[in-house]
Computed example of a mutant assay.
Amino acid sequence: MRDADRDPGAVRWEIPEPVASASGKPAEGSLRALFVPYGTDGLRPGPDIENYGNDTEFNERQATAVRAEQLKGMPRKYRDVVEKRRITRLAIRTYLSRETSHGAGEPSYLVEVGVTRFADRGSVRLTVDAYRGMAASDVFDEGPVIKGHKDAVCVRARDDEDDDELVALECVAGIGDLLVSFSATGSDPTDTEGITTLVAKQLGRIGDAGRAV
């Protein structure tokens, strides 16, 4: 839920350059092993996230620092609730939608997926509740429902009617001691169906015990 209070007219969407290849094969039992594989539905490796790469896992100290940076745009009353919860690991990966033919008018999008392991399941529930409260506020517009995952919370960032403007869709869901987050951006009209399909597949891939299924 980054940049919640930004001026939506200040950002323009440009398709980023995908990286040549992703990081090395995830180790068994790592959070990176939980991600939907590249190539699913034509999804490609996305661009690096700042200095972190496009497919990275962080230890507790690193994860806490990365989370603090990611939450800077969240309204203070909700950010305080989230930041108080201890996390032990974090993995992030970016995806670009399948390549489209020039001039075909097909929407393209970029999705950043994060999987965060919390110290306890109660903290995951409290964190999701904080996002749910924010979704019910006037900061965001209501987002789509994720089929098969009724507890997932999705919102749309506010934007104007200029087709060149950045359009953002944010989703979060808790599974056991994991918080799974999605941040999608793209040109309007955004391929909402493609994004929500990835969200559903990612949540379905993670079992209740926090393992890939």
Rank of each mutant, 00 (worst) to 15 (best):
D163K: 13
T185A: 14
I49K: 01
R85G: 06
D151T: 10
G122Q: 09
F35S: 06
P8I: 04
D208Q: 09
K147N: 12
A4K: 02
R132W: 02
E193V: 04
L31E: 07
S23E: 15
H102D: 14
L179R: 02
K150W: 02
V11P: 00
A22W: 03
A209Y: 00
A65V: 09
Y38D: 06
D80W: 01
R79T: 01
A212K: 06
V199I: 14
S183P: 00
F58T: 01
A22L: 13
V167I: 11
M74G: 00
G194Y: 08
P45G: 05
E17M: 06
G42V: 07
R2S: 10
E50C: 02
D55Q: 12
A68W: 01
D138V: 02
S30N: 03
M1H: 08
R121H: 02
A184S: 14
D129M: 10
D159M: 08
A157K: 12
T40V: 07
Y78W: 12
S21W: 01
E28A: 14
L179T: 00
P189E: 12
G42M: 12
E112K: 07
E161T: 07
D41E: 15
Y131V: 05
T190H: 06
T56F: 12
E193H: 01
E50Q: 09
R205T: 02
K147Y: 03
A27L: 10
V81Y: 07
T185P: 00
G39S: 06
K77N: 12
V213F: 04
S21I: 00
K25P: 01
A4F: 06
Y78T: 05
R117S: 10
F182T: 06
T94E: 09
I92N: 04
A157H: 15
E69M: 11
P107Q: 08
D159Y: 08
R44F: 00
K147W: 02
Y78I: 07
V167P: 00
R12I: 10
P16S: 10
G194M: 10
T94F: 06
P107I: 07
V36D: 11
A157N: 11
G133L: 12
S21T: 04
V19C: 05
T190R: 12
Q70V: 05
M134E: 09
E193K: 09
M1P: 04
A4Y: 01
R98L: 02
V139E: 14
A119T: 02
V81P: 05
V81I: 15
Y131M: 14
A65T: 07
R86D: 11
D80R: 13
P16W: 05
K77Q: 14
E57V: 01
R211I: 02
W13Y: 15
